[in-house]
Design a protein around this nucleic acid. Structure first.
Lengths: 94, 94
DNA sequence: TAAACTAGTTTATAATATAAACCAAATTTA
DNA sequence: TAAATTTGGTTTATATTATAAACTAGTTTA
């Protein structure tokens, strides 16, 4: 079989999150929500999955009095993303 | 949001089937099974989905006395596959 | 002729994605 | 200032999808 694609990344929303995070230092929950147009619930669930896998780091704090969740991609996440891209290229013969 | 990926193609096995079919004139069920290492059941289901979408054409015949299913990608399938690749590139910034 | 094999399909179950419902605190409005 | 609304999320229930197990139909082999 072609190399197995990382199922954690082979999901539309998680892939979108990762591709956003890979090009910035960090991003807020609200920013990710705007960019992906996902519902907050869906976004929350997928962020947790990426966090559990160690692909992103999630920091919960406050902006003034309002809660603020900030995410950034980890080294492991970058590596997984790059590997996924390579595997996908093999699939698509890019 | 980033352009929505065609959910019919954003599936590991269906993507593998399509990427195999795009580079050959036609392929037998057994060949696809060998190449993808999928179970026959899973392959059968996914082939039917691609057929229902009009992405592939499925012909059932016999090789001697043994049933033989042959698949080939359709024009619509080629277009969908190429569109998917472009959308994915946008995701991954390739 | 019974067992094992080929080439699949159907169906039941497991996994995944998604949205709806909910919560707490802050802010706006009547 | 009390009620309604908004913000920033999480939890949970449901819909969708993927997968494997069980099955069908016929063939070959011992």
């Amino acid at each position: 079989m072609l190399k197995k694609l990382d199922p954690l990344l082979h999901s539309e929303l998680r892939l979108a999150i990762m591709s956003l995070l890979i090009s910035v230092e960090k991003a807020e929950f609200t920013y990710l929500k705007e960019q992906t147009e996902a519902t907050a619930g869906n976004l929350s669930v997928q962020i947790t999955k990426l966090e559990d896998a160690g692909y992103i780091f999630v920091k919960k704090g406050f902006k003034g009095k309002i809660p603020q969740t900030t995410c950034n991609i980890t080294k492991k996440g970058i590596e997984a993303f790059e590997k996924y891209v390579e595997e996908l290229k093999a699939y698509l013969k890019l």
